[in-house]
């Protein structure tokens, strides 16, 4: 199989790419790592007239984090494998949970975080993880730069706030505000049939603990709706309470009705809801252990 014919444009900078994309019109597409777009083009599910190649734009592959751990900045063309191996992922295990489990080794060696966020696949791994923290998308377009909160960036399945010609330049993730002595822990677990496929369901949890009390929490589900779902009922079951078996199970139960999954080859709607419940429970437990300083290894799981 081959992609259909297209005109090829190699961009030297994001600014140049933005102008090219605007001039070429809506049948032009940007190309980053190509791990979604190239298969779609081979299957003729996508047939852009023009590809604007971002792969040779310099200076967009990096993970920078300040020593106090307050802010992490990802260049849009940073590959998943680089993030998995980064110091930031060692410091924030939820990043490693996500980056080290996306696709398989070969896909992680090519696919980029900017491409993933901009594609906004309902089963994409990055969005639920980043949404548990304070995340902004720095965009560059024909009219200049702007910054959009991630929660306002993803509008629908495969639909973002990016305008014509607009591209992701950088993703900035911050720990949510917390007091001295409070500890933050996070975890992301995605369940999938095998390495190569998208998750059947996934859960991302970020806890802020004051002693044994859950002072703040964010819980997101992936792959069970058109966009990542914030399960506020589950968070309310924990907020301001001590983390006990009962409160954790109450939160997990509340997550059962959080999504609106479609039955498909990955499973029935009932199965996905039950799976989400189990994933939320485990992710809370692991996030809590990590907040208390324990090293816990977790990643995507195959079933």
């Amino acid at each position: 199989m081959h992609p259909g014919p297209f005109r090829y444009h190699r961009a030297a900078s994001l600014e140049e790419a933005a102008v090219m994309l605007q001039q070429l019109g809506e049948d032009a597409r940007p190309l980053a790592g190509g791990q979604s777009l190239v298969p779609l083009m081979k299957l003729r599910l996508a047939g852009p007239t023009d590809l604007v190649d971002l792969a040779f734009v310099p200076g967009l592959s990096y993970v920078r984090h300040e020593d106090d751990g307050g802010e992490i900045r990802f260049g849009a063309l940073t590959r998943h494998a680089e993030i998995a191996d980064s110091g930031a992922a060692a410091r924030f295990p939820i990043l490693h949970d996500c980056a080290a489990g996306i696709g398989d080794v070969q896909v992680r060696n090519r696919g980029t975080i900017g491409g993933s966020v901009a594609e906004a696949d309902p089963s994409g791994d990055w969005a639920p993880v980043l949404l548990t923290h304070v995340t902004e998308i720095r965009c560059v377009g024909p009219g200049g730069e702007r910054t959009v909160a991630l929660r306002d960036f993803i509008l629908d399945a495969y639909t973002t706030a990016l305008g014509p010609g607009e591209l992701v330049r950088e993703i900035v993730m911050r720990a949510p505000p917390h007091e001295d002595g409070e500890r933050i822990g996070g975890a992301y677990i995605a369940a999938k049939r095998c390495a190569q496929v998208y998750a059947t369901a996934s859960a991302a949890v970020r806890l802020t603990l004051a002693g044994d009390v859950c002072r703040d929490v964010a819980i997101y589900l992936g792959a069970v709706a058109l966009t990542p779902v914030e399960v506020t009922a589950a968070a309310e079951a924990l907020r301001g309470r001590a983390l006990t078996r009962e409160t954790i199970e109450a939160a997990a139960d509340a997550a059962r009705s959080g999504g609106d999954p479609q039955p498909d080859m990955r499973g029935s709607a009932e199965y996905k809801c039950a799976l989400a419940t189990a994933l939320v429970k485990r992710a809370i437990e692991i996030a809590a252990r990590r907040a208390r300083g324990e090293q816990v290894e977790v990643s995507h799981e195959y079933a």
Binding site: P3, L31, G34, Q35, V38, P39, K42, A81, V105, Q106, V107, N109, R110
Partner: peptide
């Protein structure tokens, strides 16, 4: 780095 050459231009 390992890549799937059917999915790389």
């Amino acid at each position: 780095s390992s890549v799937k050459s059917c999915t790389v231009l």
